[in-house]
Design a protein around this nucleic acid. Structure first.
Length: 429
RNA sequence: GUGCCCAUAGUGUAGCGGCAACACUAGAGUUUGUGGAACUCUCAUCACGGGUUCGAAUCCCGUUGGGCACCCCA
């Protein structure tokens, strides 16, 4: 038979755009960040919740807003065989609100404090700190009362998490976006201010003027920024309730000494926010590491009983990017002090047995049992900076013994296999 | 969605129309049961597809992916 088959290198398949592997080298840092989030959640008494990665489209169109960018152009759609379409969740709050209603979580006792962590998806152009699949950890507090103390607890949770990750100089920007009572009045004031100037607005802004005037405050086009200077301040237009809520938030911020600054132009792109909104930044990075706000009507809009809530989410990729850029060292390497070495097939069998015995004794050991030569294995032991090498050769197997080698001094002692674990225990102490 | 830049070993780079090179990493070894040094060897049909050319990693087009910015956002 002749070999007619040409060696053809199949096209290399790349990961989808904006979606990345988290490689082994990065896993310790990721785990550190996730653990920090879990610890903060535990300290402030948040219970973990996991919701499906797919949700019905309506959940997001109804809560985030039909004309929000996330809904208009960033929805990641999955068609089912039945012809329905599902959406890869772009954020965590709406699904939790859905679950809260569906599972009657109000029965958990007020307030309901929930924490989550997992992948989110948005169909957009990847760039600095921005991916199609990214990860968030988040905190939500839902209760009967829209008590400002919950706002500060959310901000504290987010802030402490960043602090625990050794991120220094984190700044918090806050604003109030008003409520259903005062926002219409402010919208009108905005419109009154901007309508006569419509011709000088950028294209996006003149469109926003019609669909979502609040977003005019967010524009970064220089000419619009100039116009913004004299625009009505949202804080002046707040109703009595919102004003009181905001004032109280400031008192809490003073008490907790969180480094905040007012930003009257901070309006977030998701419709469900009301009253408090905030974003947290690390010095030198222009994307928010964490953000959130209050959502007094979210549960309502999904058909649940009126239950105000407040929440915040932390972008894990962004946090990790900043940690790396600032060369913050969070991960200490755990290195087992023992290294198992074998010579020959028989010894390889015994070596496996020995490792299992060590495991039962709760002793960490590293190995490179796929390698054959003693040299290569010693080299590995050295690379891992092992303190002792356990060496099993033909002769040791035959004698029912094992060599314990001190890697620093090179001194070796041969001990009976039966006593090996005890001797090792003593050495490790 | 739009605009600009980019793509050569696992990583970082050289090669600029004529034999794909260097460093690091990884693997094997330097006479067979003892590591850290040194040395030797191995690892790429130059992202993919097409075109121009006697000849393409190199020039052109397309695709995919990456980076940055806008929009928006964690």
């Amino acid at each position: 038979m002749s070999k007619l088959v040409k060696k053809i290198k199949p096209n290399v398949i790349a990961s989808p755009k904006g979606m990345h592997d988290i490689l082994p080298a990065d896993q310790p840092l990721w785990e550190k960040v996730r653990k920090a989030a879990r610890d903060v959640a535990a300290y402030y008494n948040f219970s973990r919740i996991d919701t499906p990665i797919l949700e019905k489209a309506e959940l997001f169109t109804r809560t985030l807003g039909e004309v929000s960018d996330v809904v208009e152009k960033q929805m990641f759609e999955v068609k089912t065989k039945g012809g329905d379409s599902l959406i890869l969740r772009p954020e965590g709050t709406a699904p939790i609100a859905r679950s809260y209603i569906e599972n009657g979580l109000s029965h958990l006792g007020q307030p309901v404090k929930l924490y989550y962590e997992g992948p989110m998806f948005r169909y957009e152009q990847p760039q600095a700190g921005r991916f199609r699949q990214f990860h968030q950890a988040g905190f939500e507090i839902i209760s009967n009362e829209n008590d400002t103390v919950y706002d500060i607890q959310i901000m504290l949770s987010c802030y402490r998490l960043l602090e625990d990750l050794k991120l220094k100089e984190v700044g918090i920007q806050i604003n109030s976006t008003g409520c259903q009572r005062c926002r219409p009045g402010f919208r009108k004031k905005l419109l009154d201010y901007y309508r006569p100037k419509e011709k000088s607005l950028c294209g996006d802004c003149s469109r926003r003027l019609k669909v979502n005037p609040m977003r005019l405050l967010d524009c970064k086009v220089p000419s619009c920024v100039e116009l913004k200077k004299d625009s009505p301040n949202i804080l002046d237009g707040l109703c009595f309730d919102c004003k009181r809520h905001f004032k109280r938030l400031l008192e809490f911020l003073e008490e907790t000494k969180l480094p905040y600054s007012l930003n009257q132009y901070l309006v977030r792109g998701l419709d469900y926010y009301s009253k408090t909104v905030f974003e947290m930044f690390a010095g030198g990075f222009d994307y928010a590491l964490a953000a959130g706000g209050r959502y007094d009507y979210l549960i309502d809009s999904l058909g649940g009983r009126q239950s105000p809530g407040v929440g915040g989410a932390i972008g894990l990729e962004r946090v990790i990017e900043v940690i790396k850029a600032k060369e913050i060292n969070l991960v200490g390497k755990i290195k087992p002090k023992l290294f198992m070495i074998h010579m020959g097939d028989l010894a390889q069998i015994k070596a496996i047995g020995m490792i299992e015995e060590l495991r039962r004794a709760n002793i960490d050991v590293r190995e490179s049992l796929g390698k054959e030569s003693l040299k290569a294995q010693l080299k590995m032991a050295d690379k891992f900076k092992s303190e002792w090498a356990l060496i099993l050769g033909q002769q040791e197997v035959f004698e029912q013994s094992i060599i314990i080698r001190d890697m620093k001094s090179g001194a070796q002692e041969t001990v009976p296999l039966k006593k090996a674990v005890d001797v090792i225990k003593r050495k490790l102490r």
